[in-house]
Nucleic acid binder design. Structure first.
Lengths: 164, 164
DNA sequence: GCCAATTGTTGTCGTCAACAACAATCTTCC
DNA sequence: GGAAGATTGTTGTTGACGACAACAATTGGC
């Protein structure tokens, strides 16, 4: 964009009273500016893009990271437990784990006490990898600080604390 | 969830030292709690679900609402302009407008000054409908207030203001 | 007037949430 | 102890959505 020059319609749109020209950029959002959901959606898109870019070299997306982190902190969890905790559909978790298992980061161990379920564990390389992912994720978090300010980030975390 | 009662495994899992029981609910998130992106994602899911439910009767989703609002506030915009302003792919906007046009809420008017582009307008029923959508969206916004608090909602909007 | 850029459109691909159905297994209850 | 119901992991489908690529029509620069 940037300027967009005079654009097309030089006609000044006879005093319509109601509607304003709206040529270059300044396009009003009207009611949208008062909606938390809109701001949150835009912010979430930005934050995910930065996360994906910052962890691009290791090819780890936000959801994968959350799964690895939870398994790392709670070894032996079942797929149901992980899915519930993270708000992921258990059907979706199947594919996520397939991928992580193929990469030898996670392993499904058949539970002896409940033969329906799998106990999830990080593999040794998985543990090493997660440590690296955490360092990169911390770097991403610093980007967030730079974008919205250290204080605002903390405020945000406090406000949304009970959604985690 | 709610309580989940005593759950299953009453066995106390011998002092394993490293890994904690992790039976019922209390599953640690570890590094995740310090990540703004995780909190924002969960919040965004909640907020969209409430929006979709609150505007369920009129069958309007957040993205459709944002498109209608911007067109309503800036009649005559091109599809490119709307797409850019809302951060939507112009390819995606095509389908959104197809749907909204079929429902007679929006019309594409062939621009006389640039015959490549369409000028977007709300139809008369579209204007009436949007007024109703805005009332419902305001109701949704009250739900947000109830969930995170009036003050926190305002803080949030301020923090994320320049993402809109 | 010619070549590059823009606009709307169509199509493909991959991510993700929401369901539904199913086999294997566990739990409950009689 | 055994039938009935619930749970776990799995497979598949649907629809919203973002990212791209290609295309015809049209406009703009030069």
């Amino acid at each position: 964009m940037t300027a967009t020059a005079t654009r097309t319609s030089p006609r000044k749109r006879a005093g319509n009273g109601a509607a304003r020209p709206v040529d270059g950029d300044e396009i009003g959002l009207d009611a949208l500016v008062g909606h938390a959901g809109y701001a949150v959606r835009r912010f979430q898109i930005w934050i995910f893009q930065d996360f994906i870019r910052t962890l691009g070299d290791v090819d780890i997306r936000p959801t994968q990271y959350s799964v690895l982190t939870v398994i790392g902190a709670n070894p032996g969890l079942s797929q149901m437990a992980v899915a519930k905790r993270l708000g992921i559909e258990r059907a979706r978790l199947v594919h996520l784990l397939d991928s992580l298992e193929q990469r030898d980061l996670v392993k499904r161990v058949k539970s002896s006490t409940d033969r329906r379920s799998h106990a999830l564990h990080l593999t040794p390389p998985g543990k090493t990898a997660l440590a690296k992912f955490k360092r990169l994720a911390a770097e991403h978090e610093r980007h967030v600080e730079e974008r919205i300010g250290k204080q605002n980030r903390e405020r945000l975390l406090r406000i949304l604390a009970d959604f985690t």
